[in-house]
């Protein structure tokens, strides 16, 4: 379970303002919103990578608000994350990138490699194991990032734009893979995507972050009928409206 209580974060300008949020264990939660609205920052706070200026954050039953770096590191071991820009280690091969979280969690070398290979096959990257990330296309790098995020079967997986830069067929394949993963071990899954339609059909519950607040947080099927004109405009992509 992930719970935010009145979480605020500001850099130059306020980015998140008193955000409340409650995601039950094993749920799939989608987050959409205009660019530079603070979606990635919200994910980093949920992953324990960034501290909020105010408010409380609970991850998997643990209040991490006052935790020091050591305790945070322990919490983060239960979370997998795909970064928006993939953040692949550029000094390691693709296989080592994916095996890295396993090795760091104490899995033996052979087993870590076998599991990483299996994961790479699942994202359609068999044969690229020994390449360096810089030798891959953008979409391939994204898939390596996906494989690395979920390879250690974390309790919580966070995907920041898992399908950005992928063609429609690969996008469908990726969502199938996320669905399979979710059915297998029921991790709490958080997905940010600007591909609104694909996300709405994947996540039963979605939220819309705009102007530092969650303007909608509920049933994905009902978002188009929201009372909020901003929400309706964003989902339909219309040029007419308050946005």
């Amino acid at each position: 379970m992930i719970r935010f209580s009145r979480v605020s974060k500001a850099f130059r300008d306020p980015l998140l303002v008193d955000v409340d949020l409650d995601i039950e264990s094993g749920a799939i939660w989608g987050l959409i919103g205009p660019g530079a609205g603070g979606k990635s920052v919200l994910l980093k706070i949920a992953a324990g990578l960034m501290r909020p200026d105010a408010g409380r954050v609970e991850i998997a039953g643990r209040d991490i608000t006052g935790d020091d770096e050591t305790a945070l590191a322990q919490t983060r071991e239960r979370i997998g994350m795909l970064f928006q820009n993939n953040a692949l280690f550029d000094f390691m091969t693709v296989l080592d990138n994916v095996a890295f979280p396993l090795r760091r969690r104490g899995v033996a070398d052979d087993e870590a490699e076998a599991r990483a290979e299996k994961r790479l096959r699942a994202v359609g990257l068999a044969g690229s194991e020994h390449k360096m990330p810089s030798e891959l296309s953008g979409g391939m790098q994204k898939r390596v990032g996906l494989a690395r995020a979920s390879v250690a079967d974390p309790e919580v997986v966070i995907y920041d734009e898992p399908t950005a830069g992928l063609d429609p067929v690969t996008t469908s394949k990726i969502y199938d893979l996320l669905r399979e993963d979710h059915e297998a071990s029921k991790p709490t899954t958080i997905v940010v995507s600007s591909d609104v339609d694909a996300l709405l059909s994947f996540a039963p519950r979605v939220a819309l972050l705009e102007g530092g607040v969650l303007r909608y947080d509920g049933d994905a099927a009902a978002i188009a009928e929201s009372d909020d004109a901003v929400v309706r405009q964003f989902v339909t992509g219309s040029l007419e409206g308050p946005l």
Binding site: E77, M81, F83, F89, R104, R105
Partner: peptide, 14 residues
């Protein structure tokens, strides 16, 4: 700047 340090921290690396 490429968030590799954050990715390290996600794997429990100091």
């Amino acid at each position: 700047v490429t968030e590799q340090v954050d990715a390290l921290r996600m794997s429990g690396v100091d």
